[in-house]
């Protein structure tokens, strides 16, 4: 079942990385590089084109010690007109 994130919160200071145009392995690498710049405990949202990619990246991030909070489908109305699959992750290192 799909859940819908509340992405329209104007107080939302969580950074969003749009990787819908990237292919494997750059979907993971670019997410990982972004997380390396962040502090432990900070959150990041990453948008991928499809579910398989989002779940693959989630698996790799988990094995690197990051905490995957959710993976869900999003629609244009929710985030800057973007359709895709969103992964929400908390920096774990």
């Amino acid at each position: 079942m799909l859940r819908h994130a509340e992405l329209n919160d104007s107080n939302d200071r969580i950074e969003v990385l749009d990787l819908r145009d990237e292919n494997c392995p750059f979907t993971f690498i670019k997410t990982k590089l972004k997380l390396e710049e962040m502090k432990k405990g900070e959150e990041l949202k990453v948008i991928f084109s499809d579910e398989v990619t989002a779940r693959d990246v989630a698996k790799s991030l988990t094995s690197e010690g990051h905490e995957v909070l959710e993976v869900l489908e999003i629609h244009g109305a929710q985030l800057k007109g973007i359709d895709g699959w969103m992964l929400r992750v908390r920096c774990g290192r």
Binding site: P25, K32, L33, E36, E37, E64
Partner: peptide
């Protein structure tokens, strides 16, 4: 550079840092 070093950026022992 992200493309050139992709295969080692993936690894936890190397990565971007």
């Amino acid at each position: 550079q992200i493309k050139r070093y992709a295969r080692q950026l993936i690894m936890p022992e190397i990565g971007g840092k």
